[in-house]
Nucleic acid binder design. Structure first.
Lengths: 216, 216
DNA sequence: ACCTGAACACCGTTCAAGT
DNA sequence: ACCTGAACACCGTTCAAGT
C-alpha cells in the first residue's frame, strides 16, 4: 500500500478491463503495464481481490466526482437529484460492463460510495420519508438501479420476450398452452424493448412510490 | 450434449459449488468426480461457460419444480403467489450464494425460468396491471427480488450502515460534517438490520406498488 | 463414437535471493 | 526497502492418437 499515484494506476486498469475484458486483468498483465513483475504488485495492491475492489472504487469516484453535490444549493429538487444519481449509476455499467459481474459481491466502502448514499438519504429525507424507513428505501432504490443496469449490461435481460423464448425453444410451449400468460401477452412480448425508455419509466415509478411512502 | 442423466450431473456440480465454492468447479475437478478426464467433458457440456449455465438452470428447476403452479386452482390470490415466488428466489441465493456472481451475466432461457416468468405475468394480469405494462413490471419485480437476494448473499449490503462507515474509515467524515445525512440518521444506521424483516417489508411495498399501477 | 495423454498458453501466490 | 527468478499448484482448451 504505497502512495505512488494509485488513482492513475487504477485508471489504467479500468481501461484495460474496458478494452480487453475482466479476464485480461491478471496480476501479470497489470504488472507488465507498470514495468514490474507480478510479484512486485503485492505490496501495493494486497491481492487480486483488493485490486478489483480498487478498480470498482475508481469507477464510483468517476461517476460521483468529489466536490459539491450536483445541484447543491442550485435549487434542484430531490426528484431531480435522484434522477441524476440513477442515470449516473446506469452509465457506469454501460461504460464498464465488466463491473456488473463484481458489484453484488463486494460492499462499496469507499468515501465516494458513502457520498452517494448520503445524497440518496438526503433526497429521501427531503421527500418526507420517515427517518426509520430511509436506510431500507436507500437499499431498495440502489438495488433497483444497480440491478437494472447490471441486468442490461451483463445480459440478463438478454434478447427479450419472444426472442428469448425462441432461443430457449419455448415457442412450442407457448403454442401448446403450457405458458398461458406468454400467449396472452404475445402481442407485447413480440415488440423490441426500448431500454432507455424502460429505465426512465422505472425511475418515474420509483419517484411515485417514494411519494406514496412519504405521504403515509 | 449426450443424454446420460444430465440433471444428476448438474446436481453433483451444484453440490460441489455449495461445498467448495465456485472456484472449485473446474473442468478437471468436475471430470474427476465423474471418473473422466477433463477433455472427455467437452462433448457433454460444450464449454465451462455452458457448464455454469446448466448449473444455474438446475437451481431454477429446484426452486420452480415442474408440475402445477403453487396454488393453481387452490384459490391463492395473486399476492400470495408472488410472495411464494419471491421467497423461493431469495432462498435460491441463500442456499447457493455463488449464484449471485453469475445471475446478472446470463439470460435464463430454460423452460423453468420461462414458467417462473409466466406465473409472474399471470399474477400481474390478475392484479389488473395493463397488458402493455406487464413485461416491464415483471423485469422490475424480478430485478428487485434477485438484486436484494444477490446483494445479501454476495455481500453488497455487507456490514450495514455505521459498521460499513467504520470499516471504510468514514466515522471521521460523519463527525466533520461531510456526510450530513448519515449524521442525521445515525440513530437508525447504528441499529443492526433484520434482513428477513427488510425483505418482507420490501415485498409489502412491491405489492402496494403493483396495486397503484393496476388502479390507474 | 468415445476417451486419453501430452501439450499450449496461461493463472494467483509464496519465498528465498538479490541490490 | 524494494524488486526479481524460479517454483508451486493450478487453470480452459486443442489436438493427435488410441480403442
Amino acid at each position: 500500500m504505497v502512495g505512488e499515484a494509485q488513482p492513475e494506476n487504477d485508471r489504467r486498469r479500468v481501461i484495460l478491463a474496458d478494452e480487453q475484458g475482466l479476464d485480461a486483468v491478471s496480476m501479470r498483465a497489470v504488472a507488465q503495464r507498470a514495468g514490474l513483475t507480478a510479484m512486485a504488485l503485492y505490496p501495493h495492491v494486497g491481492s487480486k481481490a483488493e485490486l478489483l475492489d480498487q478498480m470498482l472504487g475508481r469507477l464510483v469516484s468517476e461517476v460521483m466526482p468529489a466536490g459539491p453535490a450536483p445541484g447543491e444549493g442550485a435549487g434542484l429538487c430531490w426528484q431531480q437529484r435522484l434522477y441524476f444519481l440513477a442515470r449516473q449509476g446506469r452509465r457506469l455499467f454501460r461504460d464498464h460492463p465488466w463491473a456488473a459481474a463484481l458489484i453484488f459481491s463486494r460492499p462499496a466502502a469507499t468515501a465516494e460510495a458513502a457520498r452517494a448514499s448520503d445524497e440518496v438519504y438526503a433526497a429521501l429525507l427531503e421527500a418526507g420519508v420517515p427517518e426509520s424507513e430511509v436506510p431500507r428505501l436507500e437499499r431498495m432504490l440502489t438495488t433497483v438501479v444497480i440491478g437494472y443496469a447490471a441486468s442490461e449490461a451483463g445480459g440478463r435481460f438478454g434478447p427479450g420476450g419472444i426472442e428469448r423464448a425462441r432461443r430457449g425453444g419455448l415457442t412450442a410451449a407457448v403454442r401448446e398452452g403450457s405458458l398461458p400468460a406468454h400467449a396472452a401477452l404475445a402481442r407485447w412480448l413480440e415488440q423490441p424493448v426500448d431500454w432507455d425508455a424502460e429505465f426512465e419509466a422505472d425511475l418515474r415509478d420509483v419517484m411515485r412510490f417514494i411519494e406514496t411512502v412519504a405521504s403515509g
